[in-house]
Nucleic acid binder design. Sequence first.
DNA 1: CAATCAAGCGGACCGTGGTCCGTTTAAAGT
DNA 2: ACTTTAAACGGACCACGGTCCGCTTGATTG
Lengths: 217, 217
Amino acid sequence: MTGPDTPAPRLPEPGGTRTNLPLAPTDEPPQLRADAARNRTLLLDAASRLLSGCGAAELTMESVAAAAGVGKGTVFRRFGDRAGLLLALLDHREKQLQAAFLSGPPPLGPDASAAERLHAFGPAVLRHERDHHPLILASRTDALRHYAVPAFHLRLNHLALLLRQAGVPGDPEPLAHTLLGSIDTALVHHLTVERGMPLERLEEAWHHLVTRLGATA
Amino acid sequence: MTGPDTPAPRLPEPGGTRTNLPLAPTDEPPQLRADAARNRTLLLDAASRLLSGCGAAELTMESVAAAAGVGKGTVFRRFGDRAGLLLALLDHREKQLQAAFLSGPPPLGPDASAAERLHAFGPAVLRHERDHHPLILASRTDALRHYAVPAFHLRLNHLALLLRQAGVPGDPEPLAHTLLGSIDTALVHHLTVERGMPLERLEEAWHHLVTRLGATA
DNA sequence: CAATCAAGCGGACCGTGGTCCGTTTAAAGT
DNA sequence: ACTTTAAACGGACCACGGTCCGCTTGATTG
């Protein structure tokens, strides 16, 4: 749901003499060929199998390819690069979180007030990230790539929406970025693991921040 | 001022029969040998020369070594890794900013109220980062390394101090991280360059944030 | 000035991420 | 079934970051 993998598969550019548009309704579900789809899951399975036996740092592209019984080129064709593979691995776990705040029960889901959802959002993300930080951290090689990840966008838009709904004053987009930044995986890992700060303290800081910004709806 | 380079030069472990402690007062100014110091500046010069002729992405360790007329091993010995070299390059430019908010004129320097300094801090960093983002971004390979950089610590402590002095309520440390995150280079680059947001809008967001958090002193 | 020694040096060497390109194959037409 | 075509495949290949280790050299001590 967060998005397909193929990074830039040189789209066939539908500009020419388009006789029939084959009911592709909104945008791209890129629809892999049968063998490609099979290899994709083969690779994902192999990767998570290997990953459960060693740290993410030791996971090499070649080993994944070998474990899946395909060539190295196939891995790169499918996932673009190492980060792409890791992100794809993450994607599945991410969907659970997304479901929780998009359609789950209150206080996270839509049956609570915007302010309540705002307050609940921080701890939910915090815990999610605590559980998956090795992979998340390993997927962060490029400082900017992060902002292009669909999952990130989803969180951002969700937050911006809640901010508006809750009547929080100020420019929603930078504000949403700031809030999201305050619970970023790297920061949280640094503060909790390296500096020994308890997670509860960060949750309190989140609540303080949200309150202070004026979530009153 | 921000710190020396040598990453972990296997310290000689002073635990043994320590006859005289040779007046090393607080901590390490590691004091390079003459040839090492010469090579260090040779390398830094070579690097920034190369850098002014191409993007940071094209700067390879081998080319720097060659341009400086030393072996590749020397570069790694001195700077630890690529990020270390880039950080060292950045260090000089960083000092100017540090001087400005540590001892410069108001509203950034110490002759202004804490709240005024808080407000001035954001735009100052924002502009500094706008000028140097290619290098900064290139130095960010590891998601966590960032938090260990002396320059980062300095900013963080400075902010936390100002927050306390200005009587801002809430846990200062997470708050300082949040504020710093809201003007992080990667984020700013994303918002301004990739999404076309004007820098002024980010400055306003900063002022709004600081105000909203309650800088009233 | 000679001896000692740790700091510095250099470049061969290695592993890994990423690319390239000739070959194979699933799928859509006829 | 046969042709056609573009997607997919695979593994040789390359470049770069980082390590290793034997040699050199600046500093220090007597």
